[in-house]
């Protein structure tokens, strides 16, 4: 709580910088317009104009806020003009990919921890897989999957999955290996079977690592879903809003889509944080 004042100060400073930048970037256009109409603008008029243009280079914060309010609160949720509708399209792909990625990551991690062969051979490829800029080839994957008849939610979810399984693998391998030799020996003295050792010792021990990874994975899969919407003229979703906005110079629309994406990311990561706190508290790991 003691961070509130500094954080608010920083945000306020950002807003001031933003207004100043909006004035600076939009000034030229306003001046050109005035010159064309043979008007002379006072400084006050100029400032007012730069903060209220239709297609500004950089919209002022209040313009974005108004656009957000209009597209979120004043439109029917099922309408195509509603940002909530687009956010839901993106979020559903994100969640599907996130679920699949978490599942795949956990399975791989269990395999890597229990099998030396997999540890030696798979782990380097898991790392190498992330140096491939998957986001860059996302358009191709979407096009190819479309060509063989898979379209809609699934291709986007695949990209999200590819981005989100990696943090889960790394975190879970670390977590499943976190019990000390002493704890493993203790399980041994209790004559615990391999399955029991896994369920009662390794799995609980890995939870803090899992949650840390899940937060990163969630952010990554949202990025994946958004980029997945860019190609093939996607008609719905936050990525499609970004692309449409950039085609038609609707900067206010771009910024409002960006803020919606930020809100979705913050909400999703926040929910994981709440689950994390509740779970770890029940397990007595809360510190």
């Amino acid at each position: 709580m003691r961070n509130i004042l500094p954080v608010l100060t920083v945000i306020l400073a950002l807003l001031v910088v933003w207004y100043a930048a909006a004035f600076q970037l939009n000034k030229q256009w306003a001046l050109d317009m005035a010159a064309r109409q043979d008007r002379v603008m006072t400084t006050q008029q100029l400032i007012a104009d730069t903060w209220a243009q239709d297609k500004p280079k950089l919209p002022a914060p209040h313009q974005v806020a108004v656009e957000l309010w209009e597209t979120v609160a004043l439109k029917n949720v099922t309408s195509r003009r509603s940002l909530v509708y687009h956010a839901w399209v993106t979020l559903s792909a994100t969640l599907a990919g996130f679920g699949l990625g978490t599942l795949l990551g956990t399975l791989l991690a269990v395999g890597i921890v229990y099998s030396r062969v997999m540890d030696l051979s798979v782990m380097p490829w898991v790392i190498a897989s992330q140096t491939i800029p998957i986001l860059a080839i996302a358009p191709m994957i979407i096009v190819v999957l479309n060509a063989i008849g898979i379209s809609g939610l699934l291709p986007k979810a695949m990209i999200s999955m590819y981005l989100s399984f990696f943090p889960v693998v790394v975190g879970m391998v670390k977590g499943l290996r976190s019990p000390s030799q002493m704890e493993l020996d203790q399980m041994c003295t209790w004559n615990a079977s391999g399955v029991q050792e896994f369920i009662k010792l390794r799995l609980p021990a890995s939870m803090p690592y899992l949650f840390a990874s899940l937060k990163i994975a969630m952010a990554a899969s949202l990025v994946g879903a958004i980029v997945g919407e860019l190609p093939t003229g996607a008609v719905a979703g936050l990525g499609a809003r970004l692309l449409a906005g950039s085609y038609y110079g609707q900067t206010i629309q771009i910024w409002s889509a960006l803020f919606m994406a930020a809100a979705v990311a913050a909400a999703a990561v926040g929910i994981i944080g709440i689950v994390q706190r509740a779970t770890l508290k029940r397990m007595g790991l809360d510190r």
Binding site: V227, S246, A262
Partner: peptide, 10 residues
């Protein structure tokens, strides 16, 4: 944690 890539068009 944000999808910063979204500012690319801007």
């Amino acid at each position: 944690a944000l999808p910063v890539i979204g500012i690319a068009p801007i």
